[in-house]
Design a protein around this nucleic acid. Structure first.
Lengths: 201, 201, 201, 201
DNA sequence: GTGTAATCGAGACGGTACGTCGAGTCTTGTG
DNA sequence: CACAAGACTCGACGTACCGTCTCGATTACAC
């Protein structure tokens, strides 16, 4: 589950405590969403998890990396093959409306901001962040766009990356800046705009 | 200059050192863009500015507030009435292309992420952030949209907020996530999509 | 008072808190004699002194250095010019019997052992330890021996260093090893032996 | 070999690895004399010995106890019946001069200080320390003194303990404090003083 | 031979203290 | 007053050892 570890075939010594890892990730998730990354100390996570601070550092090099794993755990089950509803519009709404209700559930924006900040400071972390959090969701849209092209709904050779940003850009913008509500209206707006941008030309 | 202080009419004692304020803001700007907000300490800013740490705290309550002012100073001259080119498309490009070249100049994304994070933690700061950084730029677009409506280019009663997010959302998305280039292509793409979203219906 | 600091003639900035230094040294003395150096943490000293840990480290580089200063404070008032009783034997007893009752007062042996250990690991500390703790007491005996030589009680050119070790060696031996009581009997024994060693030849 | 364990008559299961014990003691001796007890970690000893840390703790309850055994191994061959040279002076020199050259061989003082400190903290350890390290050497002197009394060189009923401290006290003093050389001169000085202290009265 | 029990290595674990660093406050003397 | 210098409290950092614990893999004696 961790970013860091990949169990080799021969394992010597005391095995890694699965209980500890679970407890750490659970504690981290709770505290991060409760207080935000900066306001949470590693000591607090360790204490809440009933775990030694050294155990956390053994598996995660930094608080942000732990946050990444903790949030990832909360989101993994939303990333499978996107549903095929038969229309581009249907597919996109089937993708984004559940995302909307999930993201509205808990204050993820606060933590995502911190992760983005870290990504700008530490390029290696940036790569992991994008690979784990950004890419999977973009790939889902690419699949949907390819299906739409196969159906003949949209032309071949569209600028998928731009379309994806047209969809997620405004949503993340409202999530991060909080200047306007992140609701179904804006989701439907960006879906319509994205489809128009493909078919208008 | 400061967010916080507004000099009253009667001032006794040694007057505020304008030199110190300039030096602080200059030092802060340099260091913030160089290293990012988290990696810069108030001590470092004070030392680089040749100023006492207490002097900084006298005028700014927190590092993020100072960052806000420092960045604001770099951007104030871009906020006047938007140019009127005669077309909606022309106005939007005249607004966004200069913004693009400015934002590409120095690594502003690094600091903006930190400010957004702080805004999620401290609502009061969030209000100031939005008022100073977000609103002015949104208002420019509103002006442009109203001009376009007056011209009859677009219908009345459009959802201006959604349009604005359709423009800036994808651009900030690329700025903050760095998954794709922030260039003229995407600017032209969002401008076209925004206009289409207003006229297609 | 500290080993470390020597106030220059021009002092700028907030002056060193005398209250804090006193509190630190008092807390250190208490805890050290109560529990021994290894069992006392810097955090505990800081807490007992009502002082930040950083403040301790600003003035003392290590726990042992602090212990040195703390103990020194307890002993400084015993180091003036040794009393002149008119006889070598009287002078030595007037020096050693008060030392005996002082050393028996509180468990200094425990801490002295730790300081000696540190002195073997860190030569620079060893130099300070000897200069502050060992030399002053040895010098007192040298003064006494010179007075005795002036009186004609002992010949000139005796091996003062050996005599001093003959006096303090057995006493420290009992203090540190605890194999036999450190009492007046052994003090009188070493005084007699030391004098005999000077006059027998 | 260990202070702690005494194998019962019926031993089942895998027998204790003699190789491991040797390696542990050898590694401990090397590291302790090289760096001093405080600067050596159990992990370092385990690694140098090619042994698991748990194996060390199975046989020794603490680092100091291990140090005791390690040093004891280096010294056991010096503890038999002291040589009989026919004179008190000869016997004492025959005892102390070899001790001197041994002690000068390697930096034992560094470790002895730490053992003394531990002895003050942990009375049980203190008993073991004295029984293993102090008593044997004191007993040798007692034997020598009894022989001298039998010869009529010294009166009966002398204060043997004080004499012993008069001999070893100054030597340990120089060993531990390092203020003056630990050489033949001081050995001959203490031997003469000790004998004088017995015969002068 | 085949249990069976204690040993071993490796190394993860919960703790405790370390010494450092940054934030933000406070206390001087100087201008 | 404002300011520089810099000492202060507080709290988190990431590291290093401690002594314990779980593993799987060896032994050697008792049956």
């Amino acid at each position: 589950m961790s970013v860091v570890v990949d169990a080799g075939p021969l394992r010597r010594g005391r095995p890694r405590s699965e209980r500890a890892q679970q407890a750490i990730l659970a504690a981290a998730t709770d505290l991060l969403l409760e207080r935000g990354l900066d306001a949470v100390s590693m000591d607090a996570i360790a204490e809440r998890a009933g775990v030694s601070k050294a155990t956390i550092y053994r598996w995660w090099p930094a608080k942000e990396t732990l946050a990444l794993d903790a949030l990832y755990l909360e989101w993994t089950d939303t990333s499978p093959e996107p549903a095929d509803t038969g229309t581009l519009r249907g597919d996109l709404l089937a993708l984004l409306l559940p995302w909307l209700s999930r993201i509205g559930d808990r204050p993820y924006g606060r933590v995502i901001g911190a992760l983005i900040t870290k990504a700008h400071t530490d390029p290696a972390f940036g790569d992991i962040y994008r690979e784990r959090f950004v890419e999977p969701r973009r790939e889902q849209v690419r699949v949907i766009l390819r299906r739409a092209a196969a159906r003949g709904e949209v032309p071949d050779g569209v600028d998928a990356e731009a379309v994806i940003d047209l969809l997620y850009g405004p949503l993340y913008h409202r999530l991060l800046h909080g200047h306007a509500p992140l609701d179904e209206d804006i989701v439907r707006y960006v879906v319509r705009a994205a489809i128009d941008s493909l078919t208008a030309g």
